[in-house]
Design a binder for these strands. Structure first.
Lengths: 198, 198
DNA sequence: TCACGCATGTAACAGGTTACATGATTGT
DNA sequence: ACAATCATGTAACCTGTTACATGCGTGA
């Protein structure tokens, strides 16, 4: 799995402690990788054992000490080697799709309610990501092929991954909206406007 | 996890054996849920133990016997109960995103090659899904809100999930294309047309 | 007889989730 | 004194992946 590699990328960008990494995975990293602190601590320990990371204990005033992790030269080689290996197509697993497909075998109204809640969540996330993207201060309507002239290096890559997060939210919103639209029409068909209850 | 529920939906649509289910998960189910036969056999056994499925051994001419699984009334209740529970937002995990974000810490050309291969795979899948969608024989340009007037019940839900599969492939193609476009521009900037090597 | 496809499984392992545990310091 | 936050972890469990195993029947 690639939590190892996600951590290597995150620490290569900036060294940090377990809790700091947990925060990053809740925020900017969170739109394409999820991990809990328990898992992060476990993997950090493993990466130290394998020599990819080293640790420095940093004393803090008014706070418990923290362990700051950093890539070793071996860790940089590990990361570079992983980047060069082809990634297999990632299989999708979507509870939402299973529910959509199975909705007819239960209470369809309840499934539709669940989908509406999902839709609202995705809209919130989309706005959040758009706000993050706005912070990159690109000229309005910058064509993608020219983004490379305004941003570069790690910042450009971060921006492009963020755009993926935005596209993903748009995908969810589009899909769920499609489903709801098709099934609202079903409701209208059952009580057609030609026969109002007046 | 929901492999249990995916199997319940699949078997509710049509009873079948372990291998038949494996085939279905490679095909139509495959665009939103993935599972290997080992895992399917294990979960089928568990669902029989819990009383959600029952089994009939069916003798076949010229082939080994097969075990056909079918939902029990209890299984139908289990499925209906699950459908009514709200699904949490599914956290994304994308190796591709990690590689995009980390590309600068390794051989970027290799990462870009991997992405081009991904892109080609997604285009193939998209064409495949579009062919599947065409088999639903809808009038061309049918607005989504009217799809419910041509299809209904389980078939409508299948169609809508398939549309999600199509949207997902379009998402990947869009995202990866964005990334490649931004980085091709980067290459041009490094070797600008104003200074040709003549 | 040998390879192939059908059909079903077991075993070992890796990864992820949930629940619980500990200790320090700051603010009320 | 008590709750909240920072900071790090352990343990048990569940899910998913990979590799291997078995037996039957068909056709070359």
């Amino acid at each position: 799995m690639a939590l190892e590699h996600a951590l290597l990328v995150a620490l290569r960008e900036k060294p940090g402690s377990g809790l700091e990494l947990t925060r990053r995975f809740e925020r900017s990293f969170g739109y394409f990788w999820h991990a809990t602190h328990q898992q992060i601590y476990r993997v950090l320990g493993r990466l130290v054992d394998s020599g990819d990371l080293d640790v420095t204990v940093v004393a803090q005033s008014g706070r418990p000490d923290k362990k700051v992790y950093r890539l070793t030269p071996a860790g940089e080689r590990t990361l570079a080697a992983w980047l060069a290996t082809p990634a297999p197509l990632e299989p999708l697993r979507s509870d939402v799709a299973v529910k959509m497909r199975g909705a007819g075998y239960g209470d369809r109204a309840a499934v539709l309610d669940g989908l509406r809640a999902h839709l609202a969540d995705h809209r919130v996330r989309l706005e959040h990501y758009r706000a993050l993207a706005a912070a990159y201060d690109l000229p309005p309507q910058t064509p993608l092929a020219e983004v490379g002239q305004h941003l570069s290096g790690a910042v450009l890559d971060q921006y492009l991954v963020l755009r993926g997060g935005i596209r993903l939210e748009e995908f969810w919103i589009g899909w769920i909206s499609d489903y709801l639209a098709a099934h609202s029409a079903g409701v209208i068909r059952t009580e057609p406007p030609e026969a109002p209850t007046v």
